[in-house]
Nucleic acid binder design. Structure first.
Lengths: 127, 127
DNA sequence: TCCATCCATTCAATAAGCTGAATATATTGT
DNA sequence: ACAATATATTCAGCTTATTGAATGGATGGA
């Protein structure tokens, strides 16, 4: 019999509405905590708690830029799973969040045309 | 903000190694409890407990035939999720289990060439 | 340096999930 | 009717997850 332990751990990390909501945001582009806070309407500490769990599960990674910390999906399986769960991710659009001070939202930058901030390969080609 | 409650419930049902193992068996064809018991090497009562949870989550359905109860996957999303989690399901093969008294295993019937027992549409086209 | 902002961490109370054990139900054959 | 077989259910003890609250740490601007 195979091991389903690792797969179950992946499912467990996704088995939470707020964590799913976070990943559904992150599959469009990387985002800072304040952006998730504004988008999801949840307290900052709570968002951070869920981000920690996602990080411990190896689903996301982060980088620090000034005061902001940007998170993105680092496990390619998440994209496929979200496609089944939520349908395909919308492409394009401004994707702004009111009250979020991050450069993405301040400039209302389109998700596709970002030369400065897009440095991680989000091309769904990871494993 | 969308509801991720139903999707999270689906993930929660999958967030268990034995339940994943059960579904990985069922995605090949329907199976009785004794077949799962023999295949997974788990106690019967334990298998039944997990089957109950999968049924309550709406992922599987069952039919009774004599003393046996056959289970199959009734939520089409499960196939897509298992494809991402475990890779594509193997096709063909005898798929017998030692010690299982069900007709499938007694006759060592191939998963594809079953005229008598295959009555449910397992064509992944639901939902 | 001081303050405001953005994020992370710890703690505690409650809720939920896990699983072994025991037992119940239903069906078939003798 | 009785026994054997296949499956379902309930219960209890234990572990784990959830979430609000409070607080800590780091960064940048004045």
């Amino acid at each position: 019999m195979k091991h389903y332990q690792t797969q179950a751990a992946l499912m467990k990390a996704l088995a939470h509405p707020v964590r799913l909501a976070i990943l559904d945001v992150l599959r469009r582009r990387e985002a800072c905590v304040c952006h998730l806070e504004a988008t999801l309407g949840q307290r900052q500490a709570y968002i951070s708690q869920q981000l920690m769990q996602l990080r411990e599960a190896g689903l996301i990674d982060s980088r620090k830029d000034g005061r902001m910390v940007y998170y993105w999906i680092s496990d390619g399986r998440v994209y496929g799973l979200l496609d089944v769960l939520c349908g395909p991710a919308p492409v394009g659009g401004s994707y702004r969040a009111d009250g979020c001070p991050c450069p993405y939202c301040a400039a209302s930058i389109d998700a596709e045309t970002i030369p400065v901030f897009s440095n991680k390969e989000n091309s769904h080609a990871q494993r």
